[in-house]
Design a protein around this nucleic acid. Structure first.
Lengths: 144, 144
DNA sequence: AGTTTATAATTGACATATCAATCATTGATA
DNA sequence: TATCAATGATTGATATGTCAATTATAAACT
């Protein structure tokens, strides 16, 4: 087996995604959708561009995930009066409930993933992941 | 920002994938293809099922990635005489060269990602990622 | 031997992610 | 004001990954 960080990170991420897949199926959500619900939950209604910028993904992906979320009744899209190009995306009660349930499933998964980690190790792991992210993110200039 | 391990892992993985994208473009490889080349490099020719099992991905994905790799001249597919269902996948010299170049780019990326990590922190980070992976993997029975 | 079961590869369909291009609207400039 | 550039959303194309179904061959069993 390969011991590069690239593969270690891939395998951990891949296993996590697999562990959460049953939850997604039960909730009727796609892989990338919960994070959008979470952002809306924490920050209130916003435009699609804001979601794309925050998560550093393509606006096209956001658009399609919202199509799906809207069809499932988890969010609403309405035009912004100030700027008719913008859609204001808002959570529905069903969207809130789905996100709460999702968080519960995430906590369960995390507990299994970190079952043999001490509190200090958990702290350090979170720190390392955050630093790894920031080190790579800053490559793109950070002030782009 | 959310501080769940789920999001921390997602963001680190996502940033890593973004950092390696230019290398993929230059080498003419897709995101998931280098790991297949790596396995073939380390283990010699094998069937598609073996790749799918090892990386825990769907045989359909392997099949399509190999279509692409074959078209690019990175691997060859020939029928196995012992078992006519099987294709034996083998690296071409171009495939080997592409993988070497890929590894070089991965090392560069890792160095940036871990630039402010001490050797001890790198050790621990690798350990944590491996344990997180194994803890989730074992959910599926491990002896399935 | 002949039927059944299992396995290897493939194809179709859908979600996510990326890139490129388009459309409508807004803002800035001449 | 009229034009041009910038922005928000969308659609099309392609790659990865998942699930379901199909085809061909192999292995097991009666």
């Amino acid at each position: 087996m390969e011991r590069t960080f690239h593969m270690l990170l891939y395998r951990a991420f891949h296993a996590q995604r697999g562990a959460l897949r049953p939850a997604l199926g039960e909730l009727g959500l796609g892989t990338g959708q919960p994070k959008l619900l979470g952002y809306l939950r924490r920050n209130g209604p916003c435009g699609q561009r804001e979601l794309a910028n925050y998560f550093e993904i393509d606006p096209a992906a956001v658009c399609r995930m919202l199509d799906s979320l809207q069809k499932g009744g988890f969010v609403t899209r309405r035009a912004d009066d100030q700027d008719k190009r913008r859609d204001l995306i808002a959570l529905t009660p069903a969207g809130e409930a789905a996100y709460e349930a999702w968080q519960e499933r995430c906590r369960d998964m995390e507990e299994r993933m970190l079952s043999d980690f001490t509190p200090e190790e958990r702290e350090r792991f979170a720190d390392y992941l955050g630093r790894a992210y920031r080190n790579l993110k800053s490559e793109r200039g950070d002030g782009t």
